[in-house]
Design a binder for these strands. Sequence first.
DNA 1: ATAATTAATCAGGTCTACCTGACAAAATGC
DNA 2: GCATTTTGTCAGGTAGACCTGATTAATTAT
Lengths: 174, 174
Amino acid sequence: MADLINQGKTAGKLVEFGMLQNIAEDDSQHKNDYKTLFQGQGKILLALSDNDDLSQKDLVDRLNMTPQSVAEFVRKLEGRGLVSRKKSTTDKRVTIVSLTKEGRLETEKRMQVIPRFLRALNDEELLQFNNILDKINEQMYLDIKNADPTLQNKYHQMMLNHVMTKIRDDKKEL
Amino acid sequence: MADLINQGKTAGKLVEFGMLQNIAEDDSQHKNDYKTLFQGQGKILLALSDNDDLSQKDLVDRLNMTPQSVAEFVRKLEGRGLVSRKKSTTDKRVTIVSLTKEGRLETEKRMQVIPRFLRALNDEELLQFNNILDKINEQMYLDIKNADPTLQNKYHQMMLNHVMTKIRDDKKEL
DNA sequence: ATAATTAATCAGGTCTACCTGACAAAATGC
DNA sequence: GCATTTTGTCAGGTAGACCTGATTAATTAT
């Protein structure tokens, strides 16, 4: 398999890419922090940017976290003024979490750092890259599904699909 | 600029990509943890896989960390059996850190998770992807250099270049 | 030879992402 | 109407990635 060699080369460049992303954050003014985009508070923001006004239970299901963790992160985000919490009127046990204006701005800002380095690509390369990411992501969805026979994590995939189509649509409307 | 639309689309897919990487780790057996590849103990391993037998001071310079942090991470890695520490004979103040056999295996394993999803690409796409990553990485080197006028971080770039060419060579030799 | 610098250490701290266990207050099932 | 389930809270904990401050031991500079 000559494939292995090419895959190896590309793998090395991906490591390099990851490292550079980390470094770029370290000493750049914009603290949009790729590292935390998909964890903890960041995960919550991502989910809410898809579907606002979710209950904590919803977040627990979608993000595969314990209710306690979700509660903690939501509280921290509230402290930072990025989300607000209200009791549901129909079911007085549930707390509904929503993005504030600042929260919405923040999530948008967070996602927009990433493209900076995309300036280096011309239209054709961008198209190629797009195509490649589609294939890679599809493969990862499959891998995740296989790794998780309980299939319980379809929540993940649902959310992701929604988040991402939403983001794509938003950008299109620019 | 129609560019913006395409860049936006690609950006969305990159976010998706990042998220998937995180999820794939969460519920997969292999705890190779993309998140920690470039931080703390992971960073040290990466540096040592480039250049073994570095002093802690070397690591401090290359990784932009405080001596205390480096000492801590090295000690933890020693505890995990991945590195060993010896006093230099020429300068009895310095401690030389080296990868153990297990450490070397571990770093290799760590880098090899990443390509899993590359199976989804055929030869042509792999080539395209390679080319794209080169451009992106080059752009990021530039961005980092610009963001850091003190240029002090050339250590970073030096190390990275070395790490990555080394990795590439290793893979070629398979 | 003494002063200044260098490499590393110890002690202690902050912050984030998680987690478990115990529990209260609503909602629902029978 | 009471038992059970559901949603969320409080308290407390682990582990990792950092950091500052104070100190020691070895080296170099004058």
